[in-house]
């Protein structure tokens, strides 16, 4: 079942019937090939537009910005959301449960979580991107500025004037 809406979905359905269930090859930056269903690949708006533009479906899509480990995890998400139906309450609950477990596992390995976030951004996988960025935002919640800098590997670059402003803001808040 192709994702999308209205005429686009109908057209995609027709195409799918015509071509059978097409498979698409995604290649990581390490040259490892991953074969996925078109429905799974269409979770990525980047790949979806390339497929719809009559792109090189047969040749596959090289993804120079994504390593194998990250791509495997991204595909796990796309398979679940692309290949499964989400029409009934139960189906939606199952997907929500999948998302919850998926993000909990990623959350335990922050560097990997950031890699998956970057890949979701690059591939324009909206659902996955929303899931990971929200998870990262949640980790910021209880942290001090110093803890946030450590967590994100950010260098302290505020000027004396910034510090003065921050102090000023603190006295008002």
């Amino acid at each position: 079942m192709a994702t999308g809406s209205g005429a686009a979905a109908a057209a995609a359905d027709a195409e799918e019937k015509e071509s059978g269930s097409r498979m698409i090859t995604l290649t990581s930056n390490e040259g490892k090939a991953f074969v996925v269903t078109e429905a799974s690949a269409r979770q990525s708006a980047t790949i979806r537009s390339m497929v719809d533009d009559g792109g090189c479906v047969d040749k596959g899509f090289p993804l120079p910005n994504v390593d194998s480990k990250t791509l495997a995890r991204v595909i796990q998400y796309c398979d679940e959301h692309g290949n499964k139906e989400a029409h009934t309450v139960d189906e939606r609950a199952a997907l929500a449960k999948f998302d919850k477990d998926f993000i909990a596992e990623l959350d335990a390995d922050k560097a990997f979580l950031y890699d998956v976030t970057m890949a979701a951004n690059y591939l324009h996988i909206q659902g996955l991107f929303a899931l990971t960025t929200q998870c990262i935002a949640d980790t910021i919640k209880g942290k001090t500025p110093e803890e946030i800098r450590t967590a994100f590997g950010i260098e302290y670059d505020l000027t004396a004037q910034d510090e003065e402003e921050i102090k000023e803001e603190d006295t008002h808040a």
């Binding site: 960025t133 990262i136 935002a137 910021i140 800098r149 808040a173």
Partner: peptide
């Protein structure tokens, strides 16, 4: 990510704005 900081806890955005330029 910053877009998803909670609206109901302004201290969160305040702390985030003291992280870096």
């Amino acid at each position: 990510i910053l877009l998803r900081l909670p609206l109901d806890d302004p201290s969160c955005a305040a702390r985030a704005s003291a992280v870096c330029k």
